[in-house]
Design a protein around this nucleic acid. Structure first.
Lengths: 331, 331
DNA sequence: GCCCTTTCTGCTCATATGAGCAGACGAGCG
DNA sequence: CGCTCGTCTGCTCATATGAGCAGAAAGGGC
């Protein structure tokens, strides 16, 4: 490591600085770019083939040789491994950012990857709890027909939109269920209620209560997270005003998970608001044996960090840039 | 190619679109990112190892697997080959652009590569004709002591600066010669003279004439090219005014080679100016068996194209971006 | 200058990979 | 329905590559 070889034959023409490194680059060029055999490289550089092999190995080790798989469906296994280790999550799926045309494309890739992951889940979940939103909708679309058989899908948070086309949340759940030849169970409740009493009584309702307990016992969960901003689905659906969100942000909110706003530590930001939010509690989510969070896109780094550091998911599906940001900024 | 396999077992869950492609990506991930053996990959993906091998081969062929050598001293052999073929030059040296911090860095890389190339030239030139300028100065600096022995260096164009520190052109030649334990022969003449008569008589001078004929018989040449702009060395040295250059540009000049302005076709732009320019003629340069042009940097694409298309060099040293530009825009 | 320790070199041998081939399979056609 | 053709599969065999080892060389302390 600290050995910088001194030249014994000062007559020779060569650079004082590490000669082997340069040789290893030349060898790599011939080997990889010109696909010569190590033997041929040796002949050209006047080295034995073993030396060439070692040079190549050292070039790889020092990171001079980068092998990249360029394909929209490729994944970043190295990042995935690092994420798994760093955040102690069961699995991580990272899609490449290279060559994406805008945020939509990136979301589509992540959705595709999430769909693939879901389809490959073993054991196949009997009941799958899902949230809703743009990301979940994308995932539903990317699932292939027959991705599983007999999976029942249950909504885990309220979502009958109050002033938008009501179908979107329901359609997501239905589509996921249909493609797995299963049943969809909707949670027939607003996401957030104005008064605590209303929330209590709606929960007490047989239908709603039944769905909630089914949701609590799902064998796996699939959800996304929203950014705490004015374009949040909860704002667009009219559950919260932009001002409400501003106030939440002031109090440390980074985003929402199944309708519940959390801070960087994954704690509920506003308990009284949370009390009025219908759906799975975050604690239930944390106890789940399989909970897949699909969080991709430039704006979602903060929520993503909150989710992975506070144990809200066992599996994270994200994009390369977000993954790098997660790994980067906390030493 | 046109075969899109129809599924024989419609019960299976899979995407309609080319399944093998996706498999080859998964295989590549396991093979390259996780460095598993093809056998292991086969075990994971439930394929025979031969199938994995074929998948990998097809992924390579389709360009999904990119192997890059990341190092300042690396070269772009593939680009070099293409350049050689496209422009029918003997050799091309292309340095990578990745990771360069500004134009200086890029120039330094090209200079380094040119120095390396020069040092590896066989047979070693007995006499080397050189031009001068910032690029040549860089090359001289990057040459290592003892890059050759007994190489005599001769200036091929006038360069005793009229109003700058006079040393720069001379120093370049001296340094190249010193590092090869050889003699430097300067061309003691201005680059451009105001009157044709003066130029004729200076050429008739024994000293100057002798240097010029030595230059014409050099066994190899090393030169760079300047952009036709106000920051050209010829302007800075006071041989031309910015207005002169504007006029040359108006008449189609793209840059200068050994002090002579050429257009995109490699033709002399202003014959009367050229008549007053002291140094090797471009025709002599074109007849040379070895002439190395070092032309790198964003602004130099046009000159570089003129040089390679008009046969001014047998060897081009350039950077990746310029190389791509050269290959790109002419079909 | 001499000896000890560390690194480097060229090897043998085991393993991984690629070329090429015969049979299997499926598609299209009479 | 059966035939032929082209493609794909799994194989054998040759080659390329990596692991591990013994001797050589180099560096450092005394």
């Amino acid at each position: 490591m600290r050995t910088r070889r001194h030249r014994t034959h000062p007559g020779e023409a060569l650079e004082t600085i590490d000669n082997d490194e340069l040789l290893s680059i030349r060898a790599a060029e011939l080997y990889y770019d010109e696909n010569k055999t190590q033997d041929e490289v040796g002949a050209i550089l006047k080295l034995t083939r073993w030396k060439v092999g070692r040079l190549l190995a050292s070039a790889k080790e020092k990171g001079f040789i980068r092998i990249e798989i360029v394909h929209p469906r490729a994944r970043k296994l190295t990042l995935e491994r690092t994420l798994r280790e760093r955040f102690a999550i069961r699995d991580a799926i990272v899609v490449p950012a290279a060559g994406t045309n805008g945020a939509d494309d990136l979301r589509a890739r992540a959705a595709q990857a999430a769909a693939d992951y879901l389809a490959s889940l073993r054991p196949v979940p009997r009941t799958l709890g899902v949230s809703w939103g743009r990301t979940l909708h994308d995932v539903a679309e990317h699932l292939s027909d027959g991705w599983a058989t007999g999976v029942n899908v249950v909504q885990i948070n309220g979502g009958v939109s109050v002033n938008q086309r009501a179908g979107t949340a329901a359609a997501t759940a239905f589509e996921i269920a249909r493609k797995a030849s299963g049943q969809a169970t909707l949670l027939p409740s607003p996401a957030i209620l104005e008064r605590l009493e209303t929330k209590r009584s709606i929960e007490a309702d047989r239908t709603v209560g039944g769905v909630l307990s089914m949701a609590a016992e799902a064998s796996a969960y699939l959800y996304s997270a929203g950014v705490a901003g004015h374009d949040s689905a909860l704002v667009e659906s009219g559950y919260l005003t932009p001002n409400d969100v501003d106030e939440l942000v002031r109090r440390g909110a980074v985003g929402d998970v199944v309708g519940r706003y959390i801070d960087a530590a994954g704690m509920i930001v506003d308990p009284s608001l949370d009390e009025r939010t219908v759906g799975l509690s975050l604690d239930t989510l944390r106890r789940a044996s399989t909970s897949i969070a699909v969080i991709a896109g430039a704006g979602k780094i903060a929520v993503a960090r909150a989710v992975v550091t506070s144990g809200l998911c066992t599996v994270l599906v994200t994009d390369e840039a977000t993954a790098l940001a997660l790994l980067d900024s906390d030493a």
